[in-house]
Design a protein around this nucleic acid. Structure first.
Lengths: 335, 335
DNA sequence: TTGTAAGCGTTATCAT
DNA sequence: ATGATAACGCTTACAA
């Protein structure tokens, strides 16, 4: 910068003002400086700027893992908002590693804010991070001063009611580990609550597996082999539902005739497979974007958002047993 | 830091030396400083350090998108190496956005090095980035001073030969867009070359689709509906192969009896589906790790790595028509 | 072994 | 409107 200032015969202050478009500079001065900047290809040092402004200009997202379309959509939504304010995005996938807590703390020193996905850190670890840097919980419970952005998971209860009452299915199974993440906890609870509300006997224990497609395939092995196959399987997300579907088809079973399947998310694949997947639509992209906005602006102060719950909606297609006229995708696809 | 120095009754230099474990400090002094650091929970400012050391302490990965297990594995490999040296990882998915070039340039100002995935930037844009920050191309061609880390894509030719000669299939189709990325370009070329080597007529034009599972489902619609269905489909990666498999099963077709399918990557799902997927195993994690190592150490100077090609191997399972005794997964699963 | 002080590249507050 | 100059928080010769 000093170079530029010397060459353009001005002070560094002026160069700074021109380069960031702040303060008052006369047109001719601005022009002169701009030309030199252009000619020498000068770009202000991010380090110098960071130190002076006391902000890194970047934000972070922390996940347990990155597999599947859910995370990439989340990142996409988050990233687009971050880009809009010129912040770059750090990403850390802990994979439940041992040193994860320490790594998150280290990362906290390098960013202006952090979004932590539910199921990644213990409450305690999260609190420690939150006292160093602004934090928003993504798909988790809000806590102390840490706001949360999440989707309404109770809609999976409507789906369950639909299977139980509209279709009259009994013996429903749930695939997903309620202890794995707040999302799954809530979905399992809603699933149970729907059974109570319908006054049918309580479901059996959930099949505690991960949320990847491969877990769905494994679930197929567990659930579809034996004689007492469940009539319908409610999966904690679309990926496992898709894996289960593949496993069912690969075994020559018919869906939904032999077994009905439902998911959660409404990822693109859900409406492409045969039969199309009945699921709950969750605005994943919006979830990411909202989180970013909260992190960048807002946060803290009286009247700040403490908990943002985004609406979800059931999407009834064929995999639950509904027959569809297949007109418009949006409406009219209910039984 | 000055606070700590004052409280511990030492100079800032000593605090610095203690906190970074460099230089000579007497045990008692170190002890004293350490206690104060501990007590006040002092953590050195990354900004101050960055400015003084003239390095950001972070590296970046740039991708066209993030969907699928391929990218998450890549990131995992890269991240583990980066963590090892205390560097954090920026991630940018361009999604072929318009302003992508500019965003990459901006990101270049914030990192010590950048890994750019093939198919993300034009040669020209890449060159512009490379003159600002060290760059390694991931899964692309090396260029000028930019080294590349990639896998051996020609092995897909062996697979093609296997289909053509061992199984005697004709009418093979290729799914993937050779213009989309260097990886697919090379795979398509190897596919064609295998046809020439086997002295059979040249294959028809590739079905130019993306690399996601949903693209495979779309491919199923294109390829499996008509009368002149291909006898075997060589997919540019496992995700599309899996999508194609789902599409085939959903249509009541039998794989490999009606149509054989092969992929590339050997993702976990490949060995879980029914029939198991014949594919080419690529060390994705290693690819990421090698890239990170190259970026962090090495790079530049005489004798530096310019092109690292990692070995791949064919994995013959049932989806190509091989019958397996299903003994050990590793060996003995060839025809 | 320890301390002093000069950077590192900006921004921002004052004067002018 | 422009220019000095003091931060910002750390590292690292160089001195003591």
């Amino acid at each position: 910068m000093r170079e530029i200032a010397k060459i353009a015969q001005v002070s560094v202050a002026t160069v700074s003002r021109v380069s960031r478009g702040t303060g008052q500079v006369s047109p001719e001065m601005r022009e002169r400086v701009l030309r030199v900047i252009e000619e020498y290809g000068y770009r202000p040092s991010q380090m110098g700027r960071a130190l002076a402004e006391q902000k890194h200009g970047s934000v972070a997202m922390v996940f347990p893992g990155l597999a599947g379309p859910y995370f990439s959509e989340l990142i996409q939504g988050f990233e687009s908002e971050a880009m809009a304010v010129g912040a770059s995005v750090h990403i850390l996938a802990t994979h439940h590693r041992a040193g994860a807590g320490e790594q998150v703390l280290t990362m906290a020193e390098r960013v202006d804010g952090m979004a932590v996905h539910g199921g990644t850190l213990s409450d305690d670890a999260l609190r420690r991070v939150a006292e160093r840097v602004p934090v928003v919980t993504l798909a988790g419970r809000s806590m102390d001063g840490v706001p949360a952005v999440r989707a309404d998971n109770t809609t999976i209860g409507e789906l369950t009611r639909h299977l139980l009452l509209d279709h009259g299915y009994r013996r429903l199974a749930f695939v997903g580990n309620p202890d794995g993440s707040p999302d799954v906890t809530e979905r399992w609870e809603a699933f149970k609550a729907a059974h109570r509300a319908a006054k049918v006997s309580a479901p059996r224990e959930p099949l505690r597996l991960g949320l990847q497609q491969s877990d769905g395939v494994i679930a197929a092995g567990e659930l579809l082999e034996g004689r007492r196959r469940p009539r319908a399987v409610v999966c904690a997300n679309d990926e496992t539902a898709l894996g289960l579907l593949i496993g069912a088809l690969g075994r020559g079973l018919s869906v939904p005739a032999d077994v009905a399947i439902t998911g959660f998310d409404d990822v693109p694949m859900a409406s492409l497979v045969q039969p199309r997947l009945t699921t709950v639509r969750q605005p994943i992209r919006e979830l990411g974007a909202t989180t970013a906005r909260l992190l960048i602006s807002g946060l803290g102060g009286p009247g700040a958002v403490m908990d943002a719950v985004l609406a979800t909606e059931p999407v009834l297609r064929e995999s639950c047993g509904c027959t569809t006229t297949r007109r418009s995708e949006s409406k009219g696809e209910r039984t």
